[in-house]
């Protein structure tokens, strides 16, 4: 018990003393996850919109596919891209394995289905009259789309926050594709796993606290914005 309390005290010390190693790990996590999300968000939202408003053969299949992909474990994504990016793999010549780019690719694959599925749900919840009203008032398809996105902004924001929550805390893809290289591909979850296996709990607890803080901020923001978007009586 004393060991645990000492580790916790040391974890707070690491956090507030500005420990360089710790904050670099946090920085890598934020950079990789933010970049993955930024790349994925626009095509994912476009696809969600198309799945909601366009009628084409195979639409239901695509929706089911993305809903299924939601439950694919991160480690399976990691394994798939490892095989693709490894030296003998079809994309081996790109030399991306064990780089931040590979981690970004893995995280894009993880957050894309979530953005599509939740974005689709948000577009489905939009009032169908909104699109027609915008179009009949002379809005171009792009302006009408932006209008709809504004109407459902809280739902889209919820999708964004949930997707960020998923990628910032995943370990399987980052470990397999990044290789857990210090100052380069070591992010919060892979560092926690490594430090814990070494018996160095202080850094693990400190990073765990950061993840908890992220989860708290994301959930509070989500709750706040969902409250803002409540149904009008």
């Amino acid at each position: 018990m004393e060991h645990l309390s000492n580790a916790t005290i040391q974890a707070f010390y690491l956090l507030f003393s500005g420990d360089r190693d710790l904050w670099r790990i946090i920085g890598i996590s934020c950079r990789v996850s933010s970049l993955a999300l930024m790349i994925a968000v626009l095509p994912a939202i476009m696809l969600a919109f198309i799945l909601s408003y366009a009628r084409f053969i195979g639409r239901r299949f695509v929706i089911s596919l993305f809903n299924t992909l939601l439950s694919v474990p991160a480690v399976v994504i990691g394994l798939t891209f490892y095989l693709l990016l490894s030296r003998q793999g079809p994309l081996g010549d790109l030399h991306l394995l064990f780089t931040q780019s590979a981690m970004v690719i893995g995280q894009i694959a993880l957050c894309f289905p979530m953005l599509v599925a939740m974005g689709h749900a948000a577009f489905q919840s939009a009032d169908k009259r909104a699109w027609e009203t915008a179009r009949t008032l002379g809005a171009s398809p792009l302006r009408a789309l932006l209008t709809i996105m504004r109407e459902i902004r809280f739902g889209l924001l919820a999708a964004l926050l949930a997707a960020f929550g998923r990628v910032i805390s995943e370990i399987g893809a980052s470990m397999m594709l990044g290789g857990n290289i210090l100052y380069y591909t070591r992010n919060i979850p892979t560092a926690i796993a490594l430090e814990t296996s070494k018996g160095e709990f202080a850094q693990g607890i400190a990073l765990g606290l950061v993840l908890l803080l992220f989860a708290f901020v994301l959930n509070t923001s989500l709750h706040y914005f969902q409250g803002k978007g409540q149904v009008i009586a």
Binding site: E132, T133, A134, R135, T136, G138, T147
Partner: peptide, 28 residues
């Protein structure tokens, strides 16, 4: 047809914003 006709729903949809902002939406 889209450029010259306006369709009004049975229960008109109001965009998020003030009445004036809703009116502004229809302007070029």
């Amino acid at each position: 047809l889209q450029a010259n006709c306006v369709y009004l729903h049975q229960q008109p949809f109001m965009f998020d914003g003030s009445v004036a902002e809703n009116l502004a939406y229809a302007l070029p």
